[in-house]
Design a protein around this nucleic acid. Structure first.
Length: 712
DNA sequence: CCCTGCGCTTTTTTT
DNA sequence: AAGCGCAGGG
């Protein structure tokens, strides 16, 4: 990045303040910078800060952009009514809180996460008597997601559905949506879908929202799906001050309904749009850019742009292949350890390093090695805090307190800790609710009054209701943290944990996440105005995997980052290890089975990984990898060969992979399997700027490959 | 009703 | 390797 200032392209992007603007920004070309400068420029030219809306992809990105923008503008100037910077989902939550009652949902609606969705999907399938073998809840959810991103409602889905499974799914979709509504709950897609519905059917809502802002900026535009696209259009068509920023080469959420077409066709939708291309990369060393460019040219159907490296010099990326995933982890972690132990002024810190991978099972081996090497690390994503059993239990309690008709949460806690309301009793209670056509919660008094359940059960139900009602009554009076602490005490959750986890250490670990929950509540209460139970629960649902709890954890600053390629989007690190670069992993089996469009997306994913690296990039793979407890042979990814200009061999591998399922004989072993055995700088990649430095490269690679006897 | 243990399946990515 | 569903004994 040029110090302080902006290059000419960036300046154009910042200064074209009115009308539609498309910023095609390659990786590391300073797009976040352009957006923040633009916000500052708008304000400097007299726009009221609060009339600017910027939309980012994650909550974390929103927080960072807010901080940077405020730093640029000067906090004092905007602290009363700052620009609004949020994600699509938070934006829609706010719209829905205000208006959702118009379409028959309570404004206290709960937001269901993936696990809750699966529960609802499962019971929808049960209701229409479809066995899990024919249509798994996860598959149903995938279909529902696809329908929703195209704004297809159950009724229309039934008309469009083709084939047996499609029709079943459409019927299940209907049930699924009905259960959500009955529970007063929405899923992630509903946040967008229902917002769009309000915009469509209630012009006054659309008008109110569209006139709240005069400027709309969208980051990561390549990852917008149909719903988001239509919401953007609805919000921007009056003022037309729409600035979208993105990189079609980094579109990696097609599986979630994102359509690159939106960015590819932006100028068709907005014919008067100004287009600015940012092609100067200030992040990566020249050889890394060369590698990335070589890779991405294997994708067709993209905006023509070539990343130019602003940073000359640097080591060529290295490639290494190991016997199995443990060796791979050992070598990578061993190298990081040696770098951290180096003496001298240029000694790196752990947070300079990132290990990037495709799937969530891959970090295991690396975690093991990092712990063994006593290197601190943070695993981003993985099992999130809010996925932990104890947190889900307690959060369910809080959700029931906020909205007792939230059926999934109620069913989760009605017998946790066990209070003698087992599956049999709960079924009887549910039968009463179904017969009365009302939510379980409101049916409970009737069920225990009319003798539908035996008296002892009725007693327990009464006690449970009293417990919940008691805390509901307190909720507005008691400080949030106290409320949660008392509740946990009252239900005897600590005892439950020691019972569940007889191993004292395990129970302690679980209890410490409960204490972390207390902290999270405390932090929320300190920041929110006013803090409410519902507000906290909502935060927890939307925070998802980017957990801000750890953000101010001092350990994080000194830690190696482990994360998936998807989570790495938008980030950068001095030293990147792109691990597990094997056929079947990247590109993933599933993508290989689905076809070339999916393989192109995997290639973009690889591109994202490569372009995260500022100084050095190391690509590693294993010859064999454990799968379902068995060691399976693994071939180098075709992307490795493409990057190194050996695409002929990549083609061979691709062919072999395609032929394998069909024929018994396996021609693939002849190919590239051993070709990358020796680590070599990318011979095919042009070296920009610096002369090759064979000595250093050789030293680096021997260090990486150095055999170690330590094991076990 | 509650707990334990066995055997079966499952593996992409996430706001 | 791990989570889930189901059967069988307290």
């Amino acid at each position: 990045m040029p110090d302080g200032g902006l290059n000419p392209a960036q300046q154009t992007a910042v200064k074209a303040l009115s009308g539609p603007l498309l910023v095609l920004a390659g990786a590391g070309t300073g797009k976040t910078r352009v957006i923040t400068y633009r916000i500052a420029e708008l304000i400097r030219r007299g726009t009221t800060p609060s009339r600017i809306l910027a939309v980012t992809f994650t909550n974390k990105a929103a927080r960072e952009m807010r901080d940077r923008a405020l730093a640029l503008i000067g906090r004092r100037r905007v602290e009363v009514k700052p620009p609004e910077i949020s994600t699509f989902h938070s934006l829609c939550v706010r719209v829905l809180r205000r208006h959702i009652h118009r379409i028959g949902y309570p404004s206290e609606f709960a937001i269901y996460d993936r696990g809750d969705q699966e529960t609802v999907a499962r019971s929808a399938l049960r209701e229409i008597r479809v066995s899990n073998e024919r249509l798994r809840p996860a598959d149903l959810l995938a279909r529902i997601g696809a329908w929703k991103s195209q704004s297809i409602r159950p009724a229309m889905a039934r008309e469009l559905a083709a084939g047996d499974l499609g029709e079943l799914a459409a019927v299940a979709y209907d049930k699924y949506q009905a259960s959500l509504k009955a529970a007063g709950a929405v899923d992630f897609d509903d946040l967008l879908l229902l917002t769009e519905e309000l915009f469509e059917n209630h012009p006054e809502v659309r008008f109110a929202e569209a006139t709240r802002f005069d400027h709309l900026l969208i980051d990561e535009y390549q990852d917008t799906n149909g719903l988001q696209y239509r919401i953007v259009r609805a919000l921007a068509e009056r003022h037309r001050n729409l600035c979208v920023v993105g990189d079609d080469d980094q579109s990696i959420y097609g599986w979630r309904g994102a359509e690159v077409e939106h960015i590819l066709h932006f100028t068709r939708d907005w014919p008067d749009a100004v287009v600015v291309k940012l092609e100067d990369n200030y992040r990566c060393r020249a050889p890394i850019i060369a590698l990335a460019n070589t890779l991405i040219t294997h994708n067709t159907a993209r905006h023509q742009k070539v990343l130019r490296a602003a940073k000359e010099g640097g080591d060529p990326p290295r490639f290494a292949r190991f016997d199995d995933e443990s060796r791979e982890a050992e070598a990578v972690v061993g190298e990081i350890r040696r770098q951290l132990d180096r003496e001298g002024p240029e000694r790196p810190v752990a947070s300079d390093y990132a290990i990037l991978f495709r799937t969530n099972e891959q970090p295991r081996a690396f975690e093991l090695e990092l712990r063994r090497a006593r290197i601190p690390y943070v695993l981003v994503g993985g099992q999130s805090f809010y996925d932990r059993r104890e947190i889900k239990d307690l959060l369910s309690y809080l959700r029931v307190l906020a909205n007792p008709t939230d059926e999934v949460s109620l069913l989760r806690i009605i017998n946790v800790p066990a209070r003698g309301l087992g599956p049999g009793s709960v079924q009887s209670l549910l039968d009463v609710a179904v017969a009365r056509g009302e939510p379980l919660w409101t049916a409970l008094p009737h069920a225990i009054a009319d003798g539908s359940v035996p008296e002892p059960v009725a007693q327990r139900v009464r006690a449970f209701r009293d417990l919940i009602e008691g805390y509901r009554a307190q909720a507005t009076r008691t400080p949030l943290v106290d409320l949660v602490r008392h509740l946990v005490e009252a239900i005897g959750y600590r005892a439950e944990l020691t019972r569940l986890y007889p191993n004292a250490g395990d129970a302690e670990t679980r209890w410490s996440s409960v204490e972390e929950l207390f902290n999270a509540v405390g932090q929320y209460a300190a920041r929110a105005d006013p803090p409410t139970l519902r507000g906290f629960v909502e935060d927890a649902s939307l925070a998802g995997r980017d957990d801000e709890r750890n953000e101010d954890d001092p350990r994080r600053e000194r830690a190696v980052t482990l994360m998936t390629l998807h989570s790495a989007k938008g980030l950068e690190f001095h030293h990147v290890y792109l691990v597990g670069m094997e056929e079947g992993l990247l590109p993933h089996h599933r993508a290989l089975a689905e076809g070339s469009a999916q393989i192109a997306e995997e290639r973009r994913l690889c591109y994202v990984g490569v372009t995260r690296a500022r100084e050095t990039l190391t690509v590693t793979m294993a010859k064999s990898r454990m799968k379902w407890g068995r060691a399976e042979p693994s071939l180098p990814s075709r992307f490795v060969l493409e990057m190194r200009g050996e695409s002929a061999r990549a083609l061979e591998i691709a062919k072999a992979a395609n032929e394998r399922p069909a024929g018994g004989a396996n021609p693939s072993r002849r190919g590239g399997a051993d070709s990358t055995k020796k680590v070599r700088p990318a011979s095919g990649a042009p070296k920009v700027g610096s002369k090759p430095r064979p000595v250093e490269a050789a030293r680096a690679r021997s260090a990486l490959l150095r055999k170690k006897s330590r094991r076990g």
